[in-house]
Design a protein around this nucleic acid. Structure first.
Length: 754
DNA sequence: CCACATTTAATTTTT
DNA sequence: TTAAATGTGG
């Protein structure tokens, strides 16, 4: 209880029955959770393994684990389960999944795997991807899954053409995943809920935890809600903490009603409010508070702090994103030299990832160390994905979607046509690709050369599998196995031919992957093995296969922020979404412009604007001492330079706490010179006479009806001319009968004069 | 069958 | 601007 204020103590000392902690930013929420865990174990005498704490990211889980470890003995701390919803799902499914017909080595699909599966579903059902873009269909399905709407329920509720088509796709998609022994992210939750409702497993799961704590409760979706309440159903000791003003994942199915209606679910729930902020200066907090009061759909709440008033929040107007990056870079450097902050204690936030590039360039030139919170970036690289696909192919041969990815990477003489043939045979025979490859006699119309290539690869796969399930597996290191697969697959040699720098880098990345495997094996596997030994089913294989499965699971669940290491002493760059739950002494938020924040994709409804405002609120409240907000006059997005409108949120901030600076006119960034060169290109502004600049003229030469010649397509006639991102796009109907869209500046088009 | 060249499309946020 | 899809020549 040491060092806690009244409401915090109240929350910590609450033992039995539901508890809701409404915690404003910086109010010591994490502290309350960790202390409460310690209190339950040490003061009340609850067995540590009966306590479950659920966080939003693995990183948050790790931090909480560290903090709990400071309050308990090492043995006790280890026994408390602290993880994310998704990793909890994996644990439950690993242990009980067999009742749902799930195998041990199930694959976890990321969005690109999902995309492949969906494309296959579309192809099999002969539905056009034009009308049904895979992303969009997957989005609809994801939404359904988050609301626990399964295939049957979705089909029943489908009325219009779109829904009916999606229903078909949903069914086929799920069949493909099931056949592949795969689950997507949403399935991890959905299937966990199935377990909690399954007669064979419900009791065991409900009795397993006596105390359940859920952090960031405002961002839970329906599936997570049911899961959380199911887990706590045994003894009814559920504790939810969160802040409705920080709900920023509505688009991911988060239902803010979960927190707003907690008391309706549990009329006897104790409610504790934490409103004193220990993080930010008075001015920063005031800015955040005034901003968020513009939201109408919220419960009123007053934030206050005893901290010093601090510096005003700087709002800087820049000419364009390059200057913006420069201004922020100088600011960070000044914070270090003048305010005594370290780079590790500073961050730059932005609404969309694409804004990071200019910022990176600027920091790199200035020699300021930085890290980007994109934990997935490493695993997003082609070579890493390929490498992991090989490992997954060995761990789960039934996963045909995965196998198709690497069957001819690197090239080994298996063409698209051959693959299509195999897939068709697999579909009609209801067998996996792997299965089929082991018995090629069943595939019709396969030429000898292709058959030989496939056969060879099948043999290769089988040999790895033998190794995995072999007898002496206890002795084989995971690292050695991965090295072997990378060598024998030819992946390493493929990049070793080092034709380009890129190939060189890819080779290095493969090396890095091997180090990562080794690190996992040394640091995390022993703990997992220890834990597994304690569980029932200790006789389960602890061999190579088991190790590989654990590794692949871990890799699937890494999140963007997980990679952030504050000890590195570098500035952190991340999206506003990723910033949730973190804090820094100095924060810069860039791109406060209409269309960016609030984002143009979400200005349809007031509810969406309010979510964007909460996002802005989250960003502001991450700052402890210094905060800078920037916006620009012109911004180039996707090659198109456009004038911007300052974010409406800027206008909502209290002027008395701001210091507004206009640096857009500084030498080298004058709007005049700027507009003359790049800007008129876009053709948006024509205050400069009739805009008769050079590109316009070249555009003028080509009009509808102009006769042209193309080196490839021959003679043709222009059918339309339009501006496109600073370039001119022409549509030409060629005499050959084809119509092509060409960019005038790039296409080798010449005018034919009569 | 494969490597390379050309063309086209796409940019919200993520476990 | 870049990654992915498509087309082309060896």
């Amino acid at each position: 209880m040491e060092g806690l204020n009244g409401p915090q103590r109240e929350a910590v000392a609450h033992v039995d029955g539901p508890l809701l902690v409404l915690a404003g930013p910086g109010s010591g929420k994490t502290r309350v959770i960790t202390r409460r865990v310690a209190y339950l174990v040490r003061a009340v005498g609850i067995a540590p393994w009966q306590v479950l704490a659920i966080t939003f990211t693995n990183k948050a889980a790790g931090e909480m684990r560290d903090r709990v470890a400071e309050l308990l003995s090492a043995g006790q701390a280890k026994s408390v389960l602290i993880c994310t919803f998704h990793s909890l799902g994996v644990r439950l499914l690993r242990q009980y999944g067999s009742v749902l017909g799930l195998k041990q080595g199930f694959s976890i699909y990321d969005s690109s795997d999902q995309q492949r599966a969906m494309k296959q579903a579309l192809a099999e059902l002969e539905i056009s991807t034009k009308h049904f873009p895979p992303d969009r269909v997957l989005g609809t399905i994801s939404q359904a899954k988050n609301e626990l709407v399964d295939v049957e329920a979705f089909a029943t509720g489908a009325g219009d053409f779109y829904s009916k088509s999606v229903a078909k796709l949903y069914r086929r998609y799920q069949e493909i995943l099931t056949r592949a022994g795969a689950l997507d992210f949403d399935d991890l939750l959905l299937k966990s809920v199935e377990l909690i409702r399954h007669p064979q497993t419900a009791e065991a799961i409900k009795q397993r935890f006596a105390y359940v704590l859920i952090d960031e409760y405002q961002d839970t979706n329906r599936a997570q809600f049911i899961l959380a309440h199911g887990l706590a159903a045994g003894q009814g000791n559920i504790c939810a903490t969160g802040d409705p003003d920080q709900s920023i994942y509505r688009w991911r199915g988060a239902d803010i009603r979960n927190i707003l209606q907690f008391q309706d679910h549990y009329p006897l729930a104790k409610v504790v409010r934490l409103e004193e902020n220990y993080r930010s200066t008075k001015k920063i907090l005031a800015v955040a508070d005034v901003l968020i009061q513009n939201n109408t759909q919220r419960k009123p709440k007053r934030l206050f702090t005893e901290n010093e008033a601090g510096e005003p929040v700087e709002v800087v107007l820049c000419a364009d994103e390059k200057q913006e990056a420069k201004v922020v870079t100088e600011q960070l450097s000044a914070w270090r030299t003048q305010a005594g902050l370290t780079y590790g204690d500073m961050a730059v936030f932005y609404r969309v990832n694409s804004l990071s590039r200019v910022m990176e360039d600027s920091l790199r030139t200035a020699g300021i160390p930085y890290q980007i919170a994109r934990g997935t970036a490493f695993y997003d690289r082609k070579e890493i994905k390929d490498a992991l696909a090989y490992l997954r192919a060995v761990a789960n041969p039934a996963d045909s979607i995965n196998l198709a990815r690497i069957i001819n990477t690197p090239a080994r003489g298996i063409s698209d046509t051959t693959l299509k043939g195999l897939q068709l045979a697999a579909l009609t025979g209801r067998r996996s690709l792997y299965d089929l490859m082991q018995r090629l006699g069943d595939v019709p119309g396969l030429n000898a050369r292709a058959a030989a290539a496939v056969g060879k690869f099948a043999q290769q796969l089988e040999s790895w599998r033998q190794l995995l399930g072999g007898l002496a597996t206890e002795e084989v290191r995971l690292r050695e196995f991965v090295e072997k697969v990378l060598k024998e697959s030819g992946l390493e040699d493929f990049y070793r031919q080092d034709k380009t720098d890129q190939d060189q880098e890819r080779l290095l990345n493969l090396g890095e992957l091997i180090s990562a495997v080794q690190q996992f094996e040394q640091e995390q596997l022993p703990e997992l093995a220890e834990e597994a030994a304690g569980n029932a089913g200790a006789d389960a294989a602890r061999g190579l296969e088991w190790k590989l499965q654990r590794y692949l699971e871990q890799v699937s669940l890494v999140s963007d922020v997980d990679a952030v290491d504050p000890g590195l002493g570098s500035v952190t760059l991340m999206t506003l979404h990723a910033a949730k739950g973190l804090e820094f002494a100095g924060v810069a938020i860039i791109g406060l412009e209409e269309g960016l924040l609030p984002h143009s994709q979400s200005n349809q409804s007031p509810a969406e604007i309010e979510e964007e405002r909460r996002l802005c609120f989250v960003g502001i409240t991450r700052a402890r001492r210094l905060l800078t907000l920037t916006h620009t006059r012109y911004r180039t997005i996707f090659g198109q330079t456009q004038p911007t409108i300052p974010s409406r949120f800027l206008r909502e901030l209290p002027e008395e706490n701001l210091k507004e600076v206009d640096r857009s006119e500084e030498h080298g960034w004058e709007a005049g010179g700027f507009a003359n060169s790049t800007f008129t290109y876009g053709g948006k502004k024509d205050s400069q006479g009739q805009g008769q600049s050079a590109p316009r003229k070249s555009k003028g030469e080509y009009e509808v009806g102009t006769l042209v010649r193309h080196p490839m397509f021959g003679l043709g006639r222009v059918t339309s001319v339009s501006a496109s991102g600073g370039n001119t796009r022409v549509q030409v109907h060629f005499n050959s009968g084809s119509t092509k869209n060409l960019i005038l500046e790039f296409a080798k088009l010449e005018k034919v004069s009569l």
